[in-house]
Amino acid sequence: MLLKLWHKNKIALLFLAPWFIGIIVLGIVPMIASLYLSFTNYNMFQAPTWVGLSNYQTMLFSDSRFIQSLKVTFIYVFVGVPLQLLMAFTLAYILNKGVKGLAGFRAIYYVPSLLGPSIAIAILWRQIFGTNGVFNDVVSIFGVQPNSWVSDPSTALFTLIVLLVWQFGSPMVIFLAGLKQIPEDLYESASIDGAGSLTKLFKITIPMLTPIIFFNVVMQIIGAFQAFTPAYIIGGERGGPLDSTLFYTLYLYIKAFTEFQMGYASAMAWMLLVIIATFTGLLFLSAKKWVFYGE
């Protein structure tokens, strides 16, 4: 029996050996440790004390900031990610072929993603979307009242979504790589059949790209749920104004490293894992219907 198992798996094990060590030592073990801590009071410096489900109860039933952080994060994920992916796909499609000087444009459009959410960007963002910022100058052309977009609680999150959309470079590059993988002869034979560019887009490009679209959707959703740096650096560490940029992981970080409640933070982490896993699971289930592999 064991021997059979060995024979079946030995080749795969050869390829997976480094990954196995990594996932167990650096993945599963710390995860189990954090799962354990989620049932404890742990101030980081002294041994944790078991409190059962208490962290989870507090979180779900009596922590209004937790609910607020969920709200903020859901808006960020479900408004920001679709916009960002749409942007990434459109530009990848345009920049894939056609216009002269494409390589230059590709590089330029990737610049925002090179910068990352750095402090310089944080300062810049506050200037652009501040009272005297460029953004007001631009929107005033369309008759929009000037505002301090970063510090108005009803628009602060919107500026962070703009940042996410603006840094669409990574999914764009992945889309580009995917577009390159589509065999040219498919387009050639379609042209012979007299298909227009829109037909090609919907009958060839998008179906052939579905594995990559699927990948981008899954990964961007996982990433956006865990978004931390934009809120931490640009939102000003506390999630203000009025908790309007209190991202889930920012609140988790505050609990862990400012308030020294690592047990509570661990419980929040596992709750987030369940939420993300649910959405990812649904995506994988739906994938059978719309993702086409060349196998």
Binding site: I28, M31, F225, A277
Partner: peptide, 9 residues
Amino acid sequence: SIMLPYHVV
């Protein structure tokens, strides 16, 4: 393993 926020591991 990538769904759990980094701060707790």
